[in-house]
């Protein structure tokens, strides 16, 4: 059985030589692109785009390759920083590999384990086409034998209300097509995770797809989301109806924000009022970017495990953090 995604490589074990050859080609391509850059902004543009797509294995490969370049090579400080903040930073028995199914849909999988033994995370990116973090930092927290990750990128920057170009022209059509392609119920578990403007779409997708869990991190409130829908001349009624629906089983919904970020607390509280959900206000966090903040505290893997409500490294249950009487989490 596979998860239904073309090309059908779900259980093909990649040969090391093939992987090494692909990594080397990627490195040579990187060098050509960087060689054409004439300004710091051009360099930053390439590096930011790479951060949105690279796997942990690619970061390690680039780190080793760029270490052979002159000390003033522009890639060296960039890759050193990327490498330094990898939360786990150790090679794994099997590694995530990336396949760009479409421009707006990227799949990360080790492809060596049956989906029914794994959890699928469907990521709804925010404004910068990432889940608040460079992709390798997030992937580095997950055991590829236990997780597949799909990332939907909102290149239109319209909170997925105009769909995903290759999947469908509106949110509902895109999610229906995603269900056909991904078959989330073939997995042991499936979870939607959205950040910033991807937060509300993640909760809606969790309800629509009947997933076990939906998570919004620093998401916008639903009122703002529907206002954006209406301002584009679109009908917001289906979105309101979906949020008001209570299909069985109803997913566990989690709304997360920094406790000291006033606007995000307002948005999270408003969303929490509208739908059965858990509200997590992260103690002492005054940032919108909750996941990088957790990384800086050295807590990203533990925090992800708590949000996903399962271990990132085994099938064991996960320990939860203390919750204060006012609902803030430590």
């Amino acid at each position: 059985m596979n998860a239904g995604l073309p090309p059908n490589r779900a259980h093909v074990v990649t040969q090391p030589s093939s992987l090494s050859s692909r990594l080397d080609r990627a490195y040579r391509l990187y060098r050509r692109r960087i060689g054409r850059c004439r300004t710091e902004n051009q360099l930053n543009r390439i590096h930011l785009a790479l951060e949105n797509f690279l796997t942990p294995a690619e970061v390690r490969y680039l780190r080793a390759a760029l270490a052979r370049e002159p000390p003033d090579s522009p890639g060296r400080p960039w890759i050193a920083r990327l490498d330094r903040f990898m939360p786990v930073n150790k090679p794994r028995p099997v590694e995530f590999e990336r396949s760009g199914l479409f421009k707006s849909l990227t799949r990360y999988t080790a492809g060596t384990v049956f989906p029914e033994q794994k959890t699928l995370i469907i990521g709804f990116s925010g404004h910068f086409h990432r889940l608040m973090l460079p992709m390798p930092w997030l992937l580095d927290c997950l055991d590829p034998r236990l997780y597949d990750v799909l990332v939907l990128r909102d290149f239109s920057r319209r909170s997925f209300t105009v769909g995903v170009p290759e999947l469908g022209a509106d949110f509902f059509a895109a999610i229906a097509r995603l269900r056909e392609l991904v078959r989330p119920h073939a997995y042991r578990n499936a979870i939607a995770l959205g950040t910033s403007s991807g937060g509300t779409p993640a909760l809606l997708a969790a309800i629509l797809l009947g997933l076990k869990r939906g998570i919004s991190v620093s998401g916008q409130d639903f009122q703002r989301f529907t206002t954006r829908v209406k301002n584009r001349g679109l009908d917001d009624t289906p979105y309101a109806a979906l949020l008001a629906s209570r299909p069985e089983p109803f997913p566990d919904l989690l709304v997360v924000c920094g406790a000291e970020h006033t606007n995000d607390v307002k948005a999270a509280s408003a969303l929490h009022e509208l739908v059965p959900s858990h509200l997590w206000k992260i103690h002492n966090c005054e940032q919108h970017a909750v996941l990088p903040w957790q990384l800086a505290q050295g807590r990203l893997p533990a925090f992800l495990a708590e949000m996903l409500d399962q271990s990132l490294e085994s099938s064991d249950p996960v320990a939860t953090t203390a919750v204060a009487p006012d609902g803030q989490r430590y």
């Binding site: 902004n41 930053n44 543009r45 970017a289």
Partner: peptide, 14 residues
């Protein structure tokens, strides 16, 4: 504006 936002701003201006 965090560091990512500052980079994106400068890229857009350029």
């Amino acid at each position: 504006m965090d560091s990512l936002a500052r980079m994106e701003f400068c890229i857009a201006i350029e």
